[in-house]
């Protein structure tokens, strides 16, 4: 399998009051297409810094980063924005939906910043994704009118809309109860089953057990990198659409980004 993410000797040093604070001390990592990686580690271990770098929200001090075979370690701000809108999907702990927008409009945002025209076709896609995550009857609801689990589902739909090369999840279940957590993780696992690459930061072993590969970090370095042998069992039912429709929504024709893979 081809690797989607490849980082080499990635270093990040922050300057805090003229003191150099190294957060990453040369991390080398490769993530294959279709993998599901859990990044674990205590706070201060550098996992958030790594996720920010992977998410093109920050630039490394040293090292190389290839996302879908493009060298993006040293692009400028506009180019990084472009990469984010085309190749990356974000899921946050606090859901981070925009309160002024409805469910469908929230899902649309990445397309808008890609420079897509909002047409019936895109609208259909956004509604399809909302249906996919089980919010088929709440297109016009505002985030305030949804529960935490539902908001996170909208966020997942939003992370899927631009058909990203990698979905980055930062503690996606951190604010949810265990039952809802299971639902969300099941949804992510099912998306992984149909070929989506996911990198997830978590500090709970229970949540990490859903991933195929578990990377532990400590002091800005990778401590351990193991395959997960006791994969959490997927329960059916969260994704209720027939497989062919699912396929079409997650990887539709018109939205395949040029140059990916």
């Amino acid at each position: 399998m081809a690797s989607v993410v490849r980082i080499e000797e990635l270093e990040k040093t922050y300057i805090l009051e003229s003191v150099l604070v190294p957060a990453l001390k040369g991390v080398t990592l490769e993530v294959e297409e279709g993998d599901f990686v859990a990044l674990m580690g205590p706070s201060g271990s550098g996992k958030s810094t790594l996720l920010n770098l992977l998410g093109c929200l920050d630039r490394p001090t040293y090292g190389q980063y290839f996302l879908a075979d493009q060298d993006i370690a040293h692009l400028d701000d506009d180019q990084l924005s472009e990469i984010r809108s085309r190749y990356l999907g974000f899921i946050f702990q606090q859901y981070n939906l925009l309160p002024q927008y409805t469910v469908v409009e929230n899902i649309e945002i990445p397309l808008l910043y890609q420079g897509c025209k909002i047409t019936d076709q895109t609208l259909e896609r956004c509604e399809g994704l909302a249906r996919l995550v089980g919010l088929g009857d709440r297109f016009d609801h505002r985030p305030m009118q949804l529960s935490g689990g539902q908001q996170q589902r909208v966020a997942i739909a939003r992370a899927l809309v631009n058909d990203p090369a990698v979905i980055l999840a930062d503690e996606p279940t951190g604010n949810l109860d265990s039952h809802t957590s299971d639902e969300i993780m099941n949804l992510l696992a099912r998306l992984n089953d149909i070929g989506k690459t996911i990198i997830m930061v978590t500090h709970e072993n229970e949540i990490a057990s859903w991933a195929k590969r578990i990377i532990r970090m400590r002091d800005g370095l990778i401590e351990s990198d193991v395959r997960n042998n006791e994969l959490h069992s997927r329960s059916p039912g969260t994704i209720s659409l027939p497989p062919e429709m699912l396929e079409r929504l997650v990887q539709p024709q018109g939205f395949q980004q040029a140059g990916a893979n």
Binding site: G55, D78, E82, N96
Partner: peptide, 16 residues
């Protein structure tokens, strides 16, 4: 501020 961060993460450029 948070909304700005969200938009930036989802691909908004500075000029957007």
């Amino acid at each position: 501020t948070r909304e700005i961060g969200i938009r930036r993460a989802l691909g908004a450029k500075q000029r957007d």
